[in-house]
Design a protein around this nucleic acid. Structure first.
Length: 1061
RNA sequence: GGGCCAAUAGCUCAGCUAGGUAUGAGCGCUCGGCUGAUAACCGGGAGGUCCUCGGUUCAAAUCCGAGUUGGCCCA
């Protein structure tokens, strides 16, 4: 980009982005920026891999924008940052999408299609999605290593998972065992608890009688899953609770029911009994050991009948709800399973992975469990065991991918027994710093404490095969299994010839490999890993460990990761679990936990609500930089973000202001041939405002650096935007404009150039991590060939103490407040800024304010267009002020009785020079003709300014610091200049109407149709001629002519350009 | 059903850790000003049951309890 080149009049984000994308390509900006920091201190950032099943949404966009901003900032600070993006590409969601594409219904379709082919389909689907995501991320300027992302489907990465798993195995943390799991009968796999989605559904609700064996009556249980009754093994009671045997009457007959006491009424009513009588009370403990008959013995002959089965036991999951007795089937329910194991029971589960009853289910065999509900209820009813048959609305778990209701059942699964190392997990957790820290100490800690063993096996295809080989006739002992850690080990141990460098580790390949050792042949278990295990090894997978040990030694563990709060129980946890199991260390040092991107209505963005905003739409409407600014002004620590088009538009406006600030001096600099390299700040003859602006820049730099380092980039950005808008644009540019308009070269003008140049350039660097496009364009235009090839190679600005002057900053803050009050006073007096005022009087409340005004009289005079600034010291009173009093009748009334009225009138009528009651007493005495004793409580004082003067108090940060009085008395001199400026202003507007060049000279014909005013205007003839670049005043035949009404005075003005000028 | 988080002006948010008059900010609205950065800029003004209810306290947006709504996680 060439220095000080012409730039667009208007900030157009998409045009800037298009140019910058082209420029980055042209000069290999990203590669050079990385290279530039190659020798810097290592910083190991690890990208949490997004899942490759769809386009980037606003949340992902926020996440990647944050990552990009921090990486850019860290690079500017000199770090050599690891920036390999990652993609999570295995797992059930992709399998189900591919199944949909291929119109599959279940696993059998996959088997027929062929595992290998299916895996290939999944892979190409994931790759497709990956490409889309990469394009999305690039489109808003994220700079990561797009050429070489880590993919969880690559052999090196899959090997990292094998390695981690084998380390956990070496530590004795891998075991196979039965667990009650959530099974999706369609996907025919276990799914993790966090993959279960709860939906409101209607299910059967039945009360069933279990006839007791050694005594009269029955236990009553309630369930919403009739299909689990075949597996009933025991009934649970609360040992502490009181149960009643009630004789319930119906149709003339009586039956004895056992119920928890508070449940009796309800059950009797449900059962349609006519009445009941309590026969006996017994504690839960007292019922333990009571035997009952299995209600479906005839239908399910294989149902449990072993020693101890079909008896009452206590359990802590029993509540005094429904009946107070709980049907327990350890082959299904999780708590039932735990209690059943405690009791040493055999686990009976007559259901297959597809949700179909096995032969053990007797007459129900071959039916899908839920389809058998009806038959089971009919059978119970027929036997007279069904007390009530109703339906029930509740939340029931469904498969997150295919929406099939899950079934709870016991199967063989592989686990990493993280419960064995809970203390380690907690200790390792402490080694990481979280932002915000409470998230670690509350949610994360709670989760670790409550977390069960990690079920890492899935009975699916598209995943990392579990690297376990077991012998034929395996007895389930982990000691007899072989766990392979690496591709090399695989090559050494398997019976087949393989090439470790080229082998694909997916199921289609490794399932065929066998290991024969000591005469025993081992085959791989068919399961694949839970997809959460994939990403849990990212901290070493991303740097190619174990195949590349060097990078691991140098970098691991991660210095920083950042994801949304849902990852507390996701990636933050899985990494801690895996890191601890494999290496006994937490794999990350710092965690920045941000929130979710909510829609404008405060609810989550969702298809069904229809409130989704696509990032691309935001980019199209406002541009990538404004979108990034919007995202980056959000608090990144824990809070959810509320999307807002308005706010995004505001950020675009902020950048437009920056753009105006940047382009404003360019024409002047070009005209004057300003060379920033020849006039560094240190050599310029700086004026007060220049020094002030430069000092503010130092303060802003300090503030921003602190905020970045505290992971509050939003506050850093706020500080920068405020600086740009308030300090640079609204204050400095306004003040400095006239200096830049000077035609002749001057030290003052040069100093203004140098100041503004330096400030905008540094501002650009400060902005670069946030808005990389516009920063690049401004930087390039300001530096041309003399800078780095990209702003992103720059060093993060450091504070120059020589330029830092806190006193000056405080001074100007006061001056700014004075000016604001002065403007207010002017407005009250209806005196436009164009008209000078004779004087402005500042009555300062304190020495600090007085000193500031005194030091900067010139600036204030200029800003308020005053001929003179008078300063009243804090201890002095301005003698021209008077005070009026306002009577408080609630005090006067009781004191003076019937004369209170006239006293009030007198008080309100007079004014005094001092605001105290003794001066008021004197004045009132004169007014009233008699003495009256007054107190301060009776009145409040108001200042009374002299004729033609308006006063307004000024404050800094809400604290009053004094009063500004503006004297708007008109004099001939002021009228003369005022009218002259009115004329100038009109002529300028007419110049603009003719679209004249700034330099162009004109001829002016001025006819003021009021003799007095005409004479006044004439008095400033030179000023007018000078300001509007008039070559001469005189009659114009055929120019651009307009008649203006200026303060009710008609003025005819005509102008024409001077030919050849 | 449980845990954690949030709720302040029309909108987006500060303020809450260490209670002290809603000290609020930007945008929007409105009235006025400025006019060679001009699709920019400056000043004034209106606009609030600080989600609700209860408690502690001389005093609560702030601390405590209960609830409502929204978010995440879990069941």
């Amino acid at each position: 980009m060439s220095r000080f080149a012409e730039v667009d009049d208007q900030y157009e984000p998409d045009a800037v982005e298009e140019r910058v994308f082209g420029y980055w390509d042209e000069v290999d900006a990203y590669e050079h920026t990385k290279q530039h920091r190659a020798d810097g201190e290592d910083f190991f950032f690890v990208d949490g891999p997004p899942y490759t099943s769809g386009a980037a949404h606003m949340g992902t966009t926020w996440n990647k924008t944050l990552k990009d901003a921090y990486i850019r900032y860290l690079r500017m600070c000199g770090h050599d940052v690891t920036d390999r993006p990652g993609y999570d590409m295995h797992g059930l969601p992709i399998e189900t999408k591919v199944e949909e594409r291929l119109d599959f219904e279940n696993k059998k379709d996959i088997e027929e299609f062929g595992e290998r082919k299916f895996i290939e389909e999944c892979k190409s689907f994931a790759e497709e999605q990956l490409e889309g995501l990469q394009e999305d991320f690039k489109s808003f300027g994220v700079w990561m290593d797009w050429e070489d992302p880590y993919k969880t489907v690559d052999p090196e990465y899959m090997e990292a998972a094998w390695w981690g798993f084998s380390k956990a195995h070496e530590r004795g943390l891998v075991e196979q065992g039965q667990r009650s799991i959530s099974q999706c009968p369609r996907c025919e796999t276990a799914i993790a608890n966090n993959e279960v989605e709860y939906e409101h559904v209607e299910d059967p609700s039945i009360y069933v009688k279990f006839d007791l064996v050694d005594r009269d009556g029955s236990l009553v249980i309630w369930t919403t899953t009739p299909w689990t009754i075949p597996a009933n093994t025991f009934v649970a009671v609360d040992g502490e609770a009181t149960y009643q045997a009630v004789a319930a009457e119906r149709n003339g007959g009586t039956e004895t029911l056992y119920l928890e006491e508070s449940c009796v009424e309800d059950v009797i009513e449900r059962g349609g009994y006519d009445g009941y009588e309590v026969r006996e009370e017994v504690s839960g403990e007292g019922m333990v050991g009571w035997a009952y008959e299995h209600p479906l013995r005839e239908e399910v002959p294989d149902a449990p009948d072993f020693e101890g089965a079909l008896e009452v036991y206590t359990a802590d999951y029993v509540e005094a709800d429904r009946t107070g007795l709980v049907h327990s089937a350890p082959g299904h329910g999780e708590v039932d399973f735990e209690r059943g194991r405690e009791l040493g029971f055999e686990i009976f589960c007559p259901v297959g992975p597809d949700g179909v009853y096995s032969d053990e289910a007797g007459t129900y065999a071959g039916q899908f469990v839920e389809d058998a509900d009806g038959a089971i209820m009919d059978d119970l009813d027929r036997k007279g065991l069904l007390l009530e048959r109703d339906s029930h609305h509740h939340d029931y778990g469904h498969c997150w991918r295919c929406d099939t209701p899950i079934i709870q059942m016991v199967t063989d699964q592989w686990f990493i027994t993280v419960t064995d190392i809970k203390d380690e997990l907690l200790a390792n957790m402490e080694e990481s710093e979280w932002y915000p820290q409470e998230a670690r100490d509350n949610r994360f800690r709670d989760f670790i404490e409550d977390s069960p063993d990690w079920n890492v096996s899935r009975q699916r295809y598209w995943g990392i095969p579990i690297p376990i080989w077991v012998p034929e006739e395996w007895d389930g002992s982990v000691d007899d299994a072989i766990v392979v850690a690496t591709r090399e080990e695989l090559q050494e141990r398997v019976d087949q010839e393989i090439d470790p460098d080229s082998i694909d580790l997916h199921k289609g390949t490794v399932d065929e490999l066998t290991i024969t050792e000591d005469g025993t042949t081992y085959t791989r278990v068919p399961d694949v890993f839970d997809v959460w295990l994939d990403s849990s090894v990212a901290s070493w997978g991303t740097i190619g460990y174990p195949s590349d040990e060097e990078a691991f030694e140098k970098l691991w563990p991660a210095d920083l990761i950042m994801e949304a709060h849902d990852q507390t129980r996701g990636w933050f946890w899985s990494q801690l679990g895996m890191g601890s199991a494999a290496l006994d260390e937490v794999p990350y040092r710092n965690v920045l936990m941000h929130g979710w991107a909510l829609a404008e209505d405060g609810r989550k963005m969702s298809k069904s609500i229809g409130n989704i905003v696509a990032p691309q739409e935001a980019i199209d409407r406002h541009g990538a930089d404004p979108m990034r600014l919007f995202l980056l002004t959000q608090n990144p620590q824990g809070d959810d973000m509320r999307f807002s088009w308005d706010e995004m538009e505001n950020r675009q406006r902020d950048l437009n202001i920056l753009w105006n600030v940047f382009r404003f001096p360019l024409p002047y600099m070009r005209l004057d041939g300003f060379d920033p390299d020849e006039t560094p700040i240190g050599e310029a003859e700086l004026e007060t405002v220049d020094e002030w602006l430069l000092s503010r820049l130092q303060s802003v730099t300090t503030e921003m650096t602190e905020q970045w380092d505290a992971y509050r980039q939003d506050r850093a950005l706020d500080a920068l935007l405020e600086f740009i808008v308030e300090d640079v644009s609204r204050f400095y540019i306004q003040v400095v404009r006239e200096r830049m308009w000077e035609e002749a070269d001057s030290a003052s003008k040069t100093a203004a150039y140098a100041t503004l140049y330096h400030t905008v350039l540094e501002t650009t660097k400060l902005l670069a991590p946030f808005a990389p496009f516009v920063s690049e364009e401004i930087y390039g235009t300001l530096t041309g060939e003399s800078g780095y090839r990209t702003v992103h190679m720059c060093e993060w600005p450091t504070v120059d103490d020589d330029l830092h002057d806190p006193q000056l900053e405080a001074d100007i803050e006061i001056i700014d407040a004075v000016e604001e009050a002065g403007s207010n006073a002017r407005q009250q007096a209806e005196r436009k800024l164009r008209w000078p005022v004779t004087r402005v009087v500042v009555a300062a409340d304190d020495e600090r304010a007085a000193a500031a005004v005194d030091r900067h009289r010139d600036l204030l005079r200029d800003r308020l267009n005053a001929r003179e600034i008078e300063l009243i010291a804090p201890d002095d009173e301005w003698e021209e002020l008077a005070y009026s009093a306002r009577a408080d009748m609630s005090v006067l009334g009781p004191t003076f009785g019937e004369t209170a009225g006239e006293i009030m009138n007198a008080i309100n009528a007079v004014s005094v020079a001092e605001p105290d009651h003794s001066a008021l007493e004197d004045a009132v005495a004169r007014e009233l003709g008699r003495e009256v004793e007054l107190t301060d409580e009776m009145v409040s004082f108001n200042t009374e300014t002299p004729e033609g003067i308006e006063g307004t108090a000024f404050d800094v940060d809400g604290e009053d610091r004094g009063v500004v009085y503006v004297d708007t008395t008109l004099t001939e001199d002021i009228e003369s200049e005022g009218y002259a400026r009115e004329v100038i202003r009109r002529i300028q507007e007419m110049r603009k109407e003719l679209d004249l060049d700034i330099e162009a000279e004109i001829r002016v014909d001025l006819d003021v149709r009021d003799d007095r005013i005409a004479a006044l205007v004439e008095g400033h003839r030179d000023l007018i001629v000078d300001e509007v670049r008039a070559a001469e005043l005189g009659a114009i035949e055929d120019g651009h002519e307009r008649v203006w009404d200026v303060e009710s005075v008609e003025m005819a003005i005509a102008i024409e350009p001077v030919a050849g000028a």
